[in-house]
Design a protein around this nucleic acid. Sequence first.
DNA 1: GGATAATCATCAGGTTTCCTGTTGTTGATA
DNA 2: TATCAACAACAGGAAACCTGATGATTATCC
Lengths: 142, 142
Amino acid sequence: MEPSLLYAIKQVELAVRSHLDDILKGSGVTAVQYTALTVLHRRDGLTSAQLARNSFVKTQSMADIVTALEKARLISRRRDPADVRRILISLTDHGRDLIAQYDDPVRKLEARMTDGLTATQIRDLRHSLNHCRATLSDHPPH
Amino acid sequence: MEPSLLYAIKQVELAVRSHLDDILKGSGVTAVQYTALTVLHRRDGLTSAQLARNSFVKTQSMADIVTALEKARLISRRRDPADVRRILISLTDHGRDLIAQYDDPVRKLEARMTDGLTATQIRDLRHSLNHCRATLSDHPPH
DNA sequence: GGATAATCATCAGGTTTCCTGTTGTTGATA
DNA sequence: TATCAACAACAGGAAACCTGATGATTATCC
């Protein structure tokens, strides 16, 4: 009986999170919080609601994470002058330092994971994952 | 700046979980609990500790899930006569019914996710994911 | 222009899923 | 036999999710 692709993805993600938790032990942030930081590192000035949509969770759930990151002085928040409802989030210097500090071990984890795959296989894997992500986003659960 | 493979996997898993939560709404089980049931469906008679290792979590964490499933009468537990420390877990008829009930919508979710990919691409994706899983298991965090 | 709808942030309260740490029992090993 | 490893379980706590509701602001439609 062939295990499903859904299960295979979950398995890899579980393994990655386990290794990531280990890498981040002592950093003061969880794997989920670290991921939110990396998203902000790539796209500064997002709102909590945008971050939530990016992670397929409710805004209330993302608020927990944002609150923790702000308390740790890793992010800062400011009103959007163009839309007073919005509060834009940016990394602080402290937040950028943390990203920089763990960039290397996280890259090494990815290298270890793909060790044994060819460059072509890695490229195809990335392509297929992006395809799956896009397809599921186009047909949202609600 | 290229998003990492680790991030791509997390994104797909988040999207899958979101859709799975939606499918399972009304089932009485969570996505995590459902996944544990599918593992037992494929390999009956596992212990809680074995399930935990399979999911890269501590035995104490898996105990929460197993307790919930037993309370819902979806699994049953019995002592292993060959090793009295162990308690083997099996699906009940009720548990098998639940798996059967949601098998079709879950398969459809997987089909939707891979819509647009060729059979070869899907095969390669499965192969690469299994490779990543195995590589990370061979180099455990602890 | 004004009513209606959508969006954002937030409060309250609750559940699930993870953790550390500890203990007692049993099986494996030296 | 003595030691060590594995399993299950208890206690307690934190993180990350949820539903439901509210007020403020912006967007849309007649």
